[in-house]
Design a protein around this nucleic acid. Structure first.
Length: 274
DNA sequence: CTAAGTACCTGTCCGC
DNA sequence: TGCGGACAGGTACTTA
């Protein structure tokens, strides 16, 4: 569900509530959401620890604990994190409850149960391959126009699939990939290695822009996504192509088209994107 | 190595 | 109202 802007919004909404707060007891209601170590090991590692700060890497959220270890969370499609005072949250899909020393609780809820939660020591983080092998993120110095042009070179895969692969760029998902390709004027089914220098430059700028706009608007809410306070995002009001099949292109007025690229629903304007 | 297809889950929506 | 199929902010694994 959440992409980089949504996870960053969640991080910001939870940070001021969780920093310096102790975890009294982790209650695991659905064992398969815990990926490392096993459930008793997870509970033993987490109980009694204090949360120092919240970090984000791509779509991963990391809770830094006072012994230097981490709770690592990936929300996948429908994971949600909710902070609630006293009473339980109104969510039928709570899978893990972190009961806090202050009497409040942090809830991990997940409808489709595809999300992943880990308790990791620093020298174990390499085990999370999606985290360890993630490429640079938008809006960082490592993600430059030159970097993008370099990794695009020779790629036979479709540009949409390229953008979704976290090993090249960390944090883009289906919404922001479609939006970035629209802003850059590039068709999603184009071969990645076929982009000109000019197109590569435009895509670089578009990726940074959609991620920055997404963060500033608190993410995009279509169905499940909410931040740690239960608030929806606003960016869905400003999308150009995603979820706008058959509607008028905001640029030229033509109908937005939906197709499937790399197994994912893909939206584009056949007039504005070449 | 790259690229594409499938599996993992549960819920919603749409057409018949 | 019921049923089947497509679809859903993602990634890991398997196959060519």
């Amino acid at each position: 569900m959440p992409e980089l802007p949504e996870v960053e919004t969640i991080r910001r909404s939870l940070e001021h509530r969780l920093c310096g707060v102790g975890i009294r007891e982790a209650e695991v209601l659905l064992a398969r959401q815990i990926k490392w170590p096993d459930v008793p090991g997870f509970v033993a590692r987490v109980n009694g620890r204090c949360i120092l700060r919240l970090q984000r890497r791509g779509k991963y959220l990391l809770l830094v604990l006072d012994d230097g270890s981490y709770i690592v969370i990936h929300l996948r499609m429908t994971g949600r994190l909710l902070y609630a005072a006293k009473e339980a949250v109104q969510d039928s899909y709570v899978r893990i409850v972190f009961h806090l020393e202050n009497g409040d609780a942090l809830y991990y809820a997940d409808t489709r149960t595809l999300g992943a939660v880990y308790a990791m020591k620093p020298d174990e983080l390499w085990r999370i391959r999606g985290l360890a092998e993630m490429g640079p993120e938008p809006l960082t110095a490592e993600f430059s126009a030159d970097y993008l042009q370099g990794v695009l070179a020779g790629k036979k895969m479709k540009i949409k699939s390229f953008l979704l692969n976290q090993k090249w760029i960390g944090g883009l998902g289906n919404i922001y990939a479609d939006e970035a390709l629209f802003l850059a004027g590039i068709l999603p089914m184009r071969e990645a290695g076929s982009l000109s220098g000019m197109e590569s430059q435009k895509l670089y700028e578009a990726v940074n822009r959609v991620i920055a706009d997404g963060i500033s608007e608190g993410g995009t809410t279509f169905r499940d996504y909410i931040d740690g306070d239960g608030k929806k995002g606003l960016h869905q009001e400003n999308l150009f192509v995603y979820h706008r099949t058959g509607k008028a292109c905001r640029n030229c007025g033509d109908s937005i088209v939906r197709t499937v690229v790399g197994g994912r629903g893909t939206h584009y304007c056949p007039h504005c994107q070449k």
